[in-house]
Design a protein around this nucleic acid. Structure first.
Lengths: 228, 228
DNA sequence: CTGAATTTTTTCATACCCTGCAATGTGTGG
DNA sequence: CCACACATTGCAGGGTATGAAAAAATTCAG
């Protein structure tokens, strides 16, 4: 894992592209930001943009692979007495607190998502890969031995949380549901929060997750909201 | 509501485009089906295609507005003693049974979704509008009077379930969660089912919904699936 | 039936997205 | 310094999507 100049430059370029994209989107609106403009802002060719992002919209959303991986790790490392759902919840809260704390690019990103709902869908709904990875982590948590049985005997095994080579059919319904519920909590919390910029995000998320994890019992007056 | 020749032809063209798209996708794979090919198959110009579908992918998915509306109606019309969640579940089951029964285009559509997961995401995830409409219906169910208080006094009021002009901020968190959970159950069930073509869809959906509505208690051995 | 009004389809032009490919430039490691 | 690996770039080309205006089809009144 060399962290040479090359790697640092790549990270810098990627970050610069993402930031430029978001800044431009806030300024002119998402649909008026071309790949050419983003690239020009950073000083690279449009072709290079696509070396970093598969699609234009990915630059606005900036799917954070490291964040996802930290969540998966946290789920696997959580105390055994925690239920799968609790493990996921705690892992997510830890990350979301972290994200909310950064009063920088994430603020702008939120602004962009508020303007362009379809990006919100893309960022959370469209990236089911994350959800599948999380489901796999949950499944591994439930089967501490089974998953590693077929692993290569060589010392250098791949990252346990790099679950993308797992057979989709091998992941049960329950882990999928846990991951999906968690993702749903995040998504709905963000959607709800985005219509109420005054409120803090964290309490909304906590409330959403708790209600979902309780199976959505009959609502209290407060849950209902002001209007039908 | 004149149902003249013009309207019938439009419906026919739309249906033909959707069907051609799906058939071609099954034959050559989704990514190898161009708008030009679809249009040629139907005998219209490529430009006309975009008069019917905003995006190419919409032709494969064929979002069924009528289905969504039936669900919303059913939720509003359900017996008062049913919880919101149960009302939604019953409405969805009724529709899904109906869909599964039609051994026609839906079979091919399912095949296409199995081949192209990103379309599945698009068809369900991208259609958060549906979810919002469902959430609004749930909210109305909880507030039978409030929502209509501000309605125009004129006799010709708009369809109660045409909820797209509702202020997003006016819908509470709970209705959103109910709609989102239902949508999640559908999505996960389809995803899970699409990896196991042998199993029937309905039991999977029922299981998914039930587990979600139970708050995902600790899993049984069967729920866990074979592998981590 | 005929002609005018309305709506849809089409043609044309245009901008942008995205992908291979080959050439060129820039870190890396010996 | 040299050879290698990797990143960037220009270019060519196919595909998506939209606007505007002409052309065709449907509707409707007389």
């Amino acid at each position: 894992m060399p962290v040479g100049l090359r790697e640092r430059k790549k990270q810098a370029t990627r970050a610069a592209l993402g930031e430029a994209a978001v800044r431009l989107a806030v300024a002119r609106g998402v649909e008026n930001v071309t790949v050419e403009a983003i690239s020009a802002e950073v000083g690279v060719s449009p072709r290079t943009f696509f070396n970093y992002f598969d699609q234009r919209d990915d630059a606005f959303v900036m799917i954070d692979d490291e964040l996802s991986e930290r969540v998966r790790h946290a789920v696997l490392a959580a105390p055994a007495e925690l239920s799968p759902l609790d493990a996921v919840r705690d892992a997510l809260i830890a990350e979301l607190v972290d994200v909310e704390a950064r009063h920088g690019l994430w603020q702008l990103r939120a602004e962009v998502l508020r303007q362009a709902p379809h990006l919100l869908v893309r960022s959370l709904g469209a990236h089911t890969a994350d959800e599948f990875g999380l489901a796999t982590a949950v499944a591994r948590r439930l089967h501490p031995a089974t998953g590693d049985a077929g692993a290569p005997a060589s010392g250098e095994s791949a990252d346990v949380t790099d679950a993308y080579d797992v057979d989709p059919a091998a992941v049960g319904l329950y882990p999928r549901l846990v991951a999906a519920m968690a993702g749903t909590a995040v998504r709905v919390a963000i959607e709800h929060w985005s219509t109420r910029s005054a409120e803090a995000f964290q309490p909304i998320f906590h409330s959403a997750f708790t209600q979902l994890a309780a199976g959505l019992p009959a609502p209290t007056a407060e849950d209902r909201g002001p209007v039908g």
